[in-house]
Design a protein around this nucleic acid. Structure first.
Length: 596
RNA sequence: GCCUCGGUAGCUCAGUUGGAUAGAGCAACUGCCUUCUAAGCAGUAGGUCAUGGGUUCGAAUCCCGUCCGGGGUACCA
């Protein structure tokens, strides 16, 4: 049982017996004792002063005495100002250590068929360009949130909605028709998504030039943007596509398949996966039907030009277009259809959309629209809104080619990891393949940790020059600590030292106790990360834990102590830390190397 | 204009439902490898928590104003 609960109950009793008052549990504020003071758990007594009508010191003294007498595990206490510091019996911490050591799934809850089902949508790429750093943040967050939800005992379905149709892909298609000269992944050796992306950039180049030319001739910017030949051609392709024009559809299929092959490689490198993939080309018609149903039922309205709109002004929002005047659908249309199909396919308790904060308004509107269309779950959808990744040069723009490409970045970081290993003279005993795998693991560990340690809601800065770090508060630092632990355990095994969960220790050092306390927090950290959809909480916990371990490792010899019981104790600590770190990092999708 | 999110050390970021002297890493400087992996450990230096008020035993945290920045704002996604 968690000791916090015991103490909380005891404090309630103390208040009752000492001051004849009732307080609710929320007023019992327990926190970890700051390192500068003696004690393990601290009670803040200020909230009780109005009941005791005594000074903070005396109140704390009285409650402390009560707790020491009534709670077995409270060994002693001290009072500093309004803070009551409790010293907990060391056996409590030792028991937790045994538990961590013995429980394969310490801190993790398993789902059963009755568990809440969470569907997490993430990635959701457009098929007109390769993935970049912004997508990496999305993918890592989505994957990690899903894993954390699983660890909290939820059933999870990871899903991806591929935005495979629309004006964006028509732009790449048109550019390829015009200037492609039959270029394919096969005949060019280029990765498919990169090839298609090249033509997206190409389109924009021509489009911009045409606009400039038209403006030169006296058109307004807006007129020029709507009359440039390229954009007219792309729109015509979109119209033909929706009309199922054979040639257009074939080109679309071909180019999308190039992209999918490319994406598969990137997803695999990133280590993310999906249980169910939806394609916008399948869902947009369902959405269209829903919109038309809404129109028939008077939920939406139509303008003279045939465009269909929703009036959300009564809900504090605005007018929203749902079908264009030419009958084609917009982004919102397909999102309605996708939502409907998903809820037909699964019994979803909670739908989570991992999408950037630039679309906050979109999801507010989507929730309202689904609600109006009669879907009871509409209002409950959760938009996991994360911040953008910025570069020192500013915002990334695919059209202008100012992006950090996902594939390139992973390759570059692998190179840095390789160079670093060579300089340090590490991994020389490993085979080429194993070393290569480890370089990759370290590179991905650095990248993933760098991104996931940051509060997801905030924008973050990525400087390609110096964000690639392997020392300090980084993924490789954590991996390194793990590898060190495994090294010690291997040596112990070589020496035929058996490790036992039976801990008989006379005293525990400060550093050891800190580690045990830190380990005991893991279950609540997992839960907090789940409640808040925050991988960053896991990341920061793991960092604190291994930092603590490295201090312990520095100050205490594990295999060099004479006392067998102490050696066993320290081996159990090392094993437990290794397990929890691996478990925590696994929730972030970061692998731990046995050696590095 | 309106809506919304943010501003913590030179840089990148933590900071639990308001709690003790605001913490890490990087960069700079100084120590520690014949001993379990130095991708490590220890130390020095670095702060008006954007700013002005307010709430209270107590505010980086809650409320109001101001300044600065990001995002959104009816036929892009």
């Amino acid at each position: 049982m968690r000791i916090e609960n015991n103490i909380q109950d005891a404090v309630l009793q103390a208040i009752k017996s000492l001051y004849e008052s009732e307080v609710n549990a929320a007023q019992v504020q327990l926190q970890n004792t700051r390192k500068d003071f003696e004690g393990d758990i601290t009670l803040v007594v200020f909230p009780f002063l109005r009941l005791s009508k005594k000074s903070p010191e005396i109140t704390a003294e009285e409650i402390g005495t009560f707790l020491q007498e009534n709670v077995d595990l409270v060994e002693s206490f001290n009072v500093i100002k309004g803070f009551l510091n409790l010293v907990i019996d060391k056996n409590y911490w030792l028991n937790i250590l045994s538990e961590v050591y013995s429980d394969e799934n310490f801190g993790l809850k398993a789902a059963d068929e009755n568990s809440e089902l969470l569907m997490v949508e993430y990635s959701s790429p457009n098929t007109n360009k390769p993935l970049h750093l912004g997508h990496i943040r999305n993918n890592l967050l989505g994957f990690s949130i899903a894993e954390i939800a699983k660890a909290n005992g939820k059933q999870v379905v990871k899903t991806n909605i591929v935005n495979d149709r629309g004006i964006h892909i028509c732009k790449s298609m048109y550019a390829w028709q015009q200037w492609g000269n039959g270029k394919t992944p096969e005949n060019s050796g280029m990765k498919g998504d990169h090839l298609v992306g090249e033509f997206y950039v190409e389109f924009d180049k021509h489009y911009k030039a045409e606009i400039a030319e038209l403006v030169e001739k006296g058109l307004s910017k807006e007129e020029a943007e709507n009359q440039a030949p390229s954009i007219l051609a792309a729109r015509e392709l979109l119209r033909k596509w929706e009309a199922k024009d054979h040639e257009t559809v074939e080109l679309w299929k071909t180019m999308n398949n190039w992209v999918y092959e490319g994406f598969d490689v990137t997803y695999k490198s990133l280590g993310v996966d999906f249980d169910k993939i939806y394609y916008e080309s399948d869902t947009y018609l369902v959405g269209k039907e829903e919109v038309l149903r809404g129109l028939r039922e008077g939920i939406f309205y139509q303008k003279d030009d045939n465009s269909v709109w929703a009036d959300l002004s009564a809900d504090g929002l605005d007018q929203k277009i749902l079908l264009r005047s030419d009958g084609t659908s917009v982004y919102m249309t397909q999102d309605i259809g996708t939502a409907k199909m998903r809820f037909n396919d699964y019994t979803i308790d909670k739908m989570v959309y991992v999408v950037g904060n630039e679309q906050n308004y979109h999801f507010q509107v989507l929730a309202q629209l689904l609600d109006k269309l009669g879907f009871s779950w509409g209002k409950d959808l959760y938009h996991f809104s994360y911040g953008m990744v910025e570069l020192p040069s500013g915002k990334m723009k695919s059209r202008e080619g100012t992006v950090v490409d996902a594939d390139d970045l992973m390759d570059q970081m692998t190179e840095v990891a390789r160079k670093m290993s060579e300089e340090l003279g590490k991994l020389e005993t490993l085979s080429g393949d194993e070393a290569e795998k480890t370089f990759r693991m370290i590179a991905l560990g650095a990248l993933k940790y760098f991104i996931l340690k940051v509060d997801p809601r905030k924008n973050m800065m990525f400087n390609p020059e110096d964000s690639i770090d392997f020392n300090g508060n980084t993924g490789p630092f954590i991996q390194y600590t793990y590898a060190r632990i495994q090294s010690v355990l291997r040596k112990a095994a070589d020496k035929q030292i058996a490790i036992s969960s039976n801990l008989k220790i006379d005293s525990i050092s400060e550093k050891e106790k800190e580690l045990l306390k830190r380990l005991s927090l893991f279950p609540s950290v997992v839960q907090e990360a789940g409640d808040n959809y925050s991988p960053a909480i896991i990341a920061n916990y793991c960092y604190e834990l291994v930092k603590e371990f490295n201090q312990f490792y520095h100050d205490h010899s594990i295999l060099g102590v004479d006392d067998a019981a102490v050696m066993n104790f320290r081996l159990v600590i090392a094993t437990a830390v290794g397990k929890v770190v691996k478990s925590g990092m696994n929730l972030l999708g970061i692998e731990m190397p046995e050696r590095m």
